Amino acid sequence: MTIFAVEYIYDVQRTEDLNELRPSHREFLGRLHDEGALLASGPWLDNAAPGALLVLRGESDAEVSRLLDDDPFQRAKLITHRTLRAWKPVFGPFEDD
């Protein structure tokens, strides 16, 4: 399996919608984590565009994209940009031999 780094950029004009859907978004991500697909995720903390970084494991970028299409944030069109890139960690907890 391949590890993928995914960046979400959120719609800054829809903060209330983001706050309203955040519990279901986190529940969705919790299920992916419990299933072993999601390795880590969390929001950016700097002053750049609001968003998050997700690290997932999957067979292909198409599979990971399909998984993330069910994210409540994605379904509500709160994610204005999603970047998905295959990643090979060399050090750390996600090392992929």
Rank of each mutant, 00 (worst) to 15 (best):
Y10F: 10
V6R: 02
W87V: 00
E16Q: 11
E20W: 12
Y10N: 01
K88Q: 13
V64H: 02
P93Q: 15
L39A: 10
G51K: 06
Q13S: 14
A49K: 12
A86I: 06
E35K: 09
R82I: 03
Y8M: 06
G36S: 02
W44Q: 09
H33E: 15
T83M: 14
R22T: 03
E7G: 05
H81D: 15
L68G: 02
W87C: 04
L21E: 04
E7C: 05
L78P: 02
L29Q: 11
F28L: 02
L53I: 03
L38W: 13
R66Y: 13
G58D: 00
D46V: 04
V90R: 14
A40L: 15
L39D: 14
D70W: 09
V64Y: 00
G58H: 05
T80S: 14
L32S: 08
R82T: 03
H25C: 02
A48I: 04
P50C: 05
H33G: 01
L53K: 07
T15K: 11
E63R: 09
D69N: 07
T2M: 13
Y8K: 03
A62T: 05
F73R: 04
F73S: 02
D69T: 00
H25M: 05
D97P: 13
R85Q: 15
F73C: 02
D97A: 14
A62E: 13
F28R: 00
R57C: 09
N19Y: 06
N47R: 08
I79W: 07
E95L: 13
T83L: 13
G58V: 02
H33S: 11
A52T: 02
A52K: 04
L18R: 15
L32E: 12
M1K: 07
L18S: 06
D46G: 08
A5C: 07
T15C: 08
H25W: 09
R14P: 02
D96K: 13
D34H: 12
L54E: 05
V64F: 00
